[in-house]
Design a protein around this nucleic acid. Sequence first.
DNA 1: TGTACATCAGTGAACGCGCGTTCACTGATGTAC
DNA 2: TGTACATCAGTGAACGCGCGTTCACTGATGTAC
Lengths: 226, 226
Amino acid sequence: MAPEQETVGTDATGPDGGAGAEVVALDGRAVGRRGAATRRRILDTTAAVLERSGLRDLKVVDITREVGCSPATFYQYFRDVPSAVLVLAEEAGEEALAFGASLAEEWSGPGGVVAAERFVDGFLTYWDDHRAVLRTRNLAAQEGDARFRDVRNQSLRPLTEGFARLLVDADGRPRRDGVAPYAAAAALVAMLERMAAFHTDLEGYGVARDEVVSTTARIIHTTLAG
Amino acid sequence: MAPEQETVGTDATGPDGGAGAEVVALDGRAVGRRGAATRRRILDTTAAVLERSGLRDLKVVDITREVGCSPATFYQYFRDVPSAVLVLAEEAGEEALAFGASLAEEWSGPGGVVAAERFVDGFLTYWDDHRAVLRTRNLAAQEGDARFRDVRNQSLRPLTEGFARLLVDADGRPRRDGVAPYAAAAALVAMLERMAAFHTDLEGYGVARDEVVSTTARIIHTTLAG
DNA sequence: TGTACATCAGTGAACGCGCGTTCACTGATGTAC
DNA sequence: TGTACATCAGTGAACGCGCGTTCACTGATGTAC
């Protein structure tokens, strides 16, 4: 129907953009400094409101009331609520790409456990910083929303592939009998994410954050080392 | 507001119930054979519709259209859609309690891996039989719905506690340094559930079900054995 | 520096859809005698 | 075996809420000269 207009980019080039600055609102108007700031405010508020409600409960009205603007303004910049959340998920996802690099180090040696702990700790911190958005992204992905699933997969791919690589030896064969590299990598990522999402609740059951980190790190390390 | 009437039980005593059979519909009417059958049909249809939609998309109208009755009939037996799904989740949850027993066996010996594989395989089959309801239960739980969280926890408790027990030695001390029994048990359950929920998708990436089973079993076994 | 015009930005108010929910009613089933 | 009554069961049709979404408009900002 609508000509699927390119919306404002994920500000990779900064607020003033390039020379042409072809950023365009959904109704076809060009977006200037003021508009970009409003858009950003809507995004940040969306993230904030998300802390206390699920994606399905999240109404345009709730967001715009909190921003202090009219619902009509929201529709200048986003097609609907999930689209706005998707942008937040993309932003958070890009931050996670860095974790893949940690897996380039060798983890089998004696320092392996320490490296694993540093890694897990970093991942938990990352989740603490983006809890609402990441939780929402994963829920939407699990509910079958392809856009969120793709964003999640893309963000976690370096992790999954990094783990899988560590489970394969030089000639490309699985290092452990009965342990399929890709399946094991998926299992480890699943566990890691879940612990990151859940560790604050575990603390309610008397498990300290340090214990979560060291335990998770050791399960990963043992699985990789065999 | 409403006198929080006790609804029809989870048929622990069978369809004809006890002598008094105090089962009562939400509007206070007694429920007979015919009513119980209708209620059951609504539940089964709810489970079926759940295969292709999330909890939030699931409308009373959708269910009753498929059952072939009026929306009003639904409200005779259930307060709302989540309440009906909760009953399904309770039913599925009871079936899972049996898995706790498998963990009474000793898993550290040479037959441990085989025992672990049998266990994982059973768990995956259980999920295959109840995928829609279990997925919905877990999503609702993660979204913060306390009723679903409780049902999930109760159903998985034997598993969590079974794992935790295997990670503690005779004097009650953790068997592995740095591995907190409860945290590790939570991690293993998380991984197991996720693999159960996800294994059909993994098969789309070329990982066979057998590989998922053996891989998951080995990660669990290695974690427990140290 | 000032003025006019173009364009960006934001909004009030309303329309209308879709669904949850209810009520007063009809129909089905069971049982007392 | 038959009849009358009590109670269980199911429903059509409607009301109304709440939200998504839009449109024609006013206001703000930037810039050409």
